[in-house]
């Protein structure tokens, strides 16, 4: 049976980036993870339509695609909030009080680690060592690393986002 390449779920130009990734790997089923990386990097998360499309294009069973996408915590099936705050919960940061930072944010904004506030403004995430152990506890605010962060400082930085 001849295999015809499925067309992307929408005519969004960004699908070309994803197609390029798959082409580079010869549409080989082995390229599943690389392709999911490409989708997530391009669209920010993995939509159901995207998973269906990738499954067809790479000829990987649907359940397997879903299994892979949910096995790896780097992938997310839901869109992220407008702002992200990643608290390092690696050993060094844990010892130096990172849990207090997490619980302060969690309480004030009613958001569990790994989730986004209901207004879609803030995603609270945790990481395991971001390489700044020397300045523990470390927090990444919208991609910017900050060291020796106290709960008050963290709330203050986030407060600036939500005030806008």
């Amino acid at each position: 049976m001849h295999f015809t390449k499925p067309s992307p779920p929408s005519d969004d130009k960004r699908w070309r980036i994803v197609e390029a990734t798959m082409r580079r790997h010869g549409y080989d089923p082995y390229a599943l993870i690389e392709t999911l990386h490409s989708v997530q990097q391009t669209f920010g998360y993995l939509e159901t339509e995207a998973l269906q499309y990738v499954a067809k294009a790479l000829r990987v069973p649907l359940s397997k695609v879903y299994g892979v996408a949910t096995f790896y915590h780097f992938f997310t099936l839901k869109p992220q909030g407008e702002h992200t705050c990643v608290v390092c919960m690696g050993t060094a940061c844990y010892i130096k009080g990172a849990p207090h930072v997490v619980s302060a944010i969690s309480e004030k904004y009613q958001v569990q680690p790994g989730e986004t506030t209901s207004d879609g403004k803030l995603s609270l995430l945790t990481a395991r060592c971001i390489g700044a152990c020397g300045l523990a506890p470390a927090v990444v605010f919208d991609g910017e690393v900050a060291g020796k962060v106290t709960p008050e400082e963290a709330l203050e930085r986030i407060g600036r986002w939500t005030a806008q």
Binding site: I130, G131, A132, C133, G134, L135, V145, A146, G147
Partner: peptide, 8 residues
């Protein structure tokens, strides 16, 4: 400009 100093 590694992660530690970057955070400072």
């Amino acid at each position: 400009v590694a992660a530690g100093c970057l955070s400072a």
